[in-house]
Amino acid sequence: MASTASEIIAFMVSISGWVLVSSTLPTDYWKVSTIDGTVITTATYWANLWKTCVTDSTGVSNCKDFPSMLALDGYIQACRGLMIAAVSLGFFGSIFALFGMKCTKVGGSDKAKAKIACLAGIVFILSGK
Rank of each mutant, 00 (worst) to 15 (best):
I40R: 09
W50L: 04
T52F: 10
A71C: 03
T41W: 00
D65F: 13
F66E: 05
P67F: 01
A43D: 08
W46Y: 15
A71T: 09
V54R: 15
I35N: 03
N62G: 10
V60D: 01
F66G: 00
Y45C: 01
T58W: 01
L72N: 01
S61F: 03
N62K: 15
P67A: 11
S57R: 15
T34S: 12
T41L: 09
A71D: 08
N48E: 15
T55Q: 14
G59Q: 01
G37Y: 00
M69S: 13
L72R: 15
N62A: 12
N48L: 12
Y45G: 11
Y45T: 09
K51H: 14
A43V: 10
G59L: 03
T58M: 06
L72Q: 14
D65C: 01
N62S: 10
L72A: 12
K51T: 07
T41N: 08
T55C: 01
W50K: 14
N48R: 09
G37L: 05
T55K: 15
L72D: 08
K64M: 06
A43R: 05
N62M: 10
I35K: 07
T38I: 12
T38L: 14
S68C: 04
T44D: 00
S61E: 15
A47Q: 14
P67K: 12
I40Q: 10
T52G: 12
D56K: 06
K51I: 07
D56Q: 05
A47K: 13
D65T: 04
M69R: 13
K64V: 11
A47M: 13
D36T: 11
L72F: 01
P67W: 09
N62W: 08
W50S: 11
K51N: 14
N62H: 14
W50G: 01
S61I: 05
S61L: 00
N48K: 05
S68W: 11
T34E: 04
F66I: 05
T55D: 05
P67S: 14
T38C: 04
I40E: 00
N62T: 12
T34N: 05
V60S: 10
V60P: 02
D56M: 02
N48T: 07
T55Y: 03
M69K: 09
T42N: 12
A47I: 04
W46S: 10
C63S: 11
A43E: 06
I35W: 06
T44C: 08
G37T: 03
T44R: 09
T55N: 02
W46N: 13
C53L: 00
M69Y: 10
N48M: 02
T44I: 09
S57N: 11
C63M: 12
G59W: 00
Y45P: 02
T38N: 09
K64D: 14
T38V: 14
T55H: 05
L49Y: 07
